[in-house]
């Protein structure tokens, strides 16, 4: 800690000086008490925002309200819950012309879902997170007709960890909540 500035200020304590000292001591005490109270229930790692898939309503706000140009919310695939369906309603538009990967047959506005053949009649569906904008359209399609293996999550390698999440405050399902930073995902549980 640096020394006080050298100046001729070393007068006998004036009334103002006394008041200032008192106020400072009071402020320090208050600050100490406050941090003490907070420390008793403090956490080391803090919190991050996450979407509870059980509350998500697929309203589209995640795509439009994130402070990032491309939302940090992405669709993720719970593979163990996926039916590997040939007719995946999360992949195909409600009324596809044919069951091919042509863009006009796809539900995803950015063609972010990759469909790969596994074995008859199963197909794997994975998300290209560089393309996914988190709109939740596929989540609704999968949930409404299928098993609900698609769901939205905040990807923490992209999230800026805003103090107040801009999507959280417009979420119609109140699905956003702070979760401990050590377990930052709310994954749909895995079938066994």
């Amino acid at each position: 800690m640096p020394n006080p500035p050298k100046s001729g200020q070393v007068n006998p304590v004036s009334r103002r000086q006394f008041f200032r000292n008192g106020a400072r001591v009071a402020a320090m005490t208050g600050l100490g008490a406050l941090t003490g109270v907070l420390a008793t229930r403090g956490t080391a790692a803090g919190w991050v925002w996450q979407i509870d898939p059980a509350k998500c309503l697929r309203c589209g706000n995640c795509a439009t309200h994130c402070v990032l140009e491309q939302s940090a919310v992405k669709c993720v695939q719970a593979y163990a819950q996926c039916g590997y369906c040939q007719l995946c309603t999360g992949f195909f538009a409600p009324e596809p012309n044919e069951l091919t990967t042509a863009a006009e047959n796809q539900l995803c506005p950015t063609s972010a879902i990759q469909r790969t053949f596994v074995e008859d009649p199963y197909y794997q569906y994975s998300i290209d997170e560089n393309l996914c904008i988190g709109c939740g359209k596929c989540v609704e399609g999968c949930l409404r007709f299928g098993n609900g293996s698609f769901f939205l999550q905040i990807r923490h390698d992209r999230c800026l960890h805003c103090n107040e999440c801009a999507i959280a405050r417009v979420c119609p399902g109140e699905a956003f909540r702070r979760v401990p930073a050590q377990s930052p995902y709310l994954l749909k549980s895995v079938a066994k």
Binding site: Y79, Q124, S126
Partner: peptide
């Protein structure tokens, strides 16, 4: 939950990734 299909082609199911946030 309901179990996924039993694959015969030796397909291995990928795991849902969970990229961590900023390190402590």
């Amino acid at each position: 939950l309901f179990p996924p299909p039993e694959f015969e082609s030796g397909y291995r199911m990928p795991v849902t990734t969970t990229p961590p946030g900023r390190a402590l």
